[in-house]
Amino acid sequence: MDRDELIRIVNYEILAVPEVLEELDITNQALSSLIERGKLVPVKEVGRTRLFLREDVEKRKKEAAELKGKYRPFD
């Protein structure tokens, strides 16, 4: 794997907190709750910076949609 390919992969597959918030359409407080409950686990934490795998975020988004359909079917 060359440097350019690695950069492309990191830019697509790794999400920072603002990107996660946008993707899941949630608040920072809701994200903190997901992390505390183990529903979404950062792959790396440096100080206050957290990084997530896109695959994990998309999985959580799918789970949230399923739960919404189950418990809030009229929304």
Rank of each mutant, 00 (worst) to 15 (best):
D2W: 00
R3I: 13
D4G: 04
E5A: 02
L6G: 00
L6S: 04
I9T: 00
Y12A: 08
E13K: 10
E13H: 10
L15K: 09
L15Y: 04
A16I: 08
A16L: 10
P18R: 02
E19V: 08
L21D: 08
E22A: 12
E23C: 10
E23M: 09
E23I: 07
E23F: 00
D25K: 08
D25R: 12
D25N: 15
I26R: 00
I26T: 03
N28T: 12
L31D: 00
S32M: 14
S33P: 01
S33T: 11
S33E: 11
L34F: 15
I35T: 10
E36H: 13
R37M: 04
G38Y: 05
K39L: 10
L40P: 12
V41K: 12
V41D: 08
P42D: 07
P42H: 03
K44V: 07
E45K: 14
E45W: 02
V46I: 11
R48K: 08
T49D: 02
R50L: 12
F52H: 08
L53E: 06
D56L: 02
D56P: 03
V57D: 13
K59A: 15
K61R: 12
K61I: 05
K62D: 11
A64Y: 11
E66M: 14
K68H: 13
G69V: 01
G69P: 08
K70Y: 01
Y71W: 15
Y71M: 09
Y71G: 08
P73T: 09
F74R: 15
F74I: 15
D75S: 15
